[in-house]
Design a protein around this nucleic acid. Structure first.
Lengths: 131, 131, 131, 131
DNA sequence: GTGGTCTAGACCACC
DNA sequence: GTGGTCTAGACCACG
């Protein structure tokens, strides 16, 4: 469960956690019944307060995405079914559009952009390999 | 000066305004001395409180990016020069990283991602051609 | 709107506020549409953090007892009707029973208890006269 | 040793246990050297986790009110003497104040309050007579 | 000025 | 060890 926070973005940290776990659940990357990281260690890893993660989990539970069991950690809800690829594609396009528009504003062309994307995929895979 | 707000993102509205004006200035899309929209009409167009726009402008002024001239609106600072490419590159990478992580969670691989990026560049260029 | 907090009781402060406002509303001591103290001054008067009062008000709003209007303070809900005396009597008896049982444990007899009650009514009335 | 918990009050459970045992000790209802209920049965009777009772006993021990004897349960501290009336009076006043304030909010006057107190003493004495 | 939100630290109840 | 709650400080959006 790789979670990447951007503290400069201004987007609330707990929402970044919520959105990333929702995405992972939507794609089937996490299976129903599968345990999520417990609150304290995840908070430590992300360098945020325990309550910030707790709030994210509480939000996910109230949306019916995870189930928290006192003293036993949290798991993906048993009745959770992944979203269709078409829907996930739209979720991803929203994110890509933001980056493409930003590239336009900052005057980077398509070729430069694609090169940067390659770089960042390399960086992400390196990071996964380390953990 | 097109500014697009996303009220669902959780990112503070005034910061969205600040960041978009900064990007436009960084790329040279706005020239030094060129006037920015005045607060009241911009607030109306964006459907936010005037104080929220005022706060964004105040932030931009304190960063030395714009200059407010008593009763005459604000202009891009005369001494403003577009940012070096290296800095703009870092700004863009932040945006790309978010999309790449999202792709990871949604289980889209690099090839699919690059294909989507191409599609969105096509869509953006088509849109520009129309306008 | 006299609110009396007991910081030693262990009962959460925000709940003490909620309960006392609910009681005042239940008895008709506050009328529908009548304004409540605004959050900041009340917090200052009670020597608690603003958020503690805000949480009490938020709880009262979610119970439909008060209505908070952004930038305009909070008022008792228009559709609020006071409770019948019989019900209020039961609410008060709950509180009295706790004190009576405590008196029993601490070996105070009825006469001593009644004398103390008189004293405390005097103290309360003196406090109201001062404010 | 009758202990009555109120799970709705918001007051921490372990504190309710501590306070009630302290009151019973303060009044002389328990004598020095007299055994207290052991943790496990008391936890079962009160329907709370053993740790919660253990925490209450640990708090009482650290206050010097009880003594835990390795494997033999706990007893009221040998050197424990009932509290002076002045101190017990203050403890009782805290409880009375809560009821008096509640009466104020519910708009019961002093005469009505005193009448209710009489009623509740009658009810308590009737209950004691029966048992 | 107003109410609302986000993050954090300390404490509670349970396994 | 686990998740949950209460209080607090700083910040946001609105009038």
């Amino acid at each position: 469960m790789l979670i990447q926070l951007n503290f400069k973005s201004g987007k609330p940290v707990y929402l970044q956690i919520v959105d990333q776990i929702k995405s992972a659940a939507a794609s089937g990357a996490i299976k129903p019944g599968e345990p999520l990281p417990t609150i304290r260690p995840l908070a430590e890893e992300l360098r945020v307060n325990r309550n910030t993660v707790a709030r994210a989990y509480s939000e996910l539970e109230s949306q019916g995405i995870i189930e928290s069991r006192h003293g036993k950690g949290s798991v993906l809800a048993e009745n959770h079914s992944p979203l269709k690829k078409e829907i996930r594609r739209k979720m991803l396009i929203d994110e890509i559009d933001q980056a493409v528009v930003q590239a336009h504003h900052l005057q980077f062309d398509r070729a430069e952009f694609l090169k940067l994307v390659d770089e960042r995929f390399d960086a992400l895979e390196k990071k996964k390999g380390e953990s």
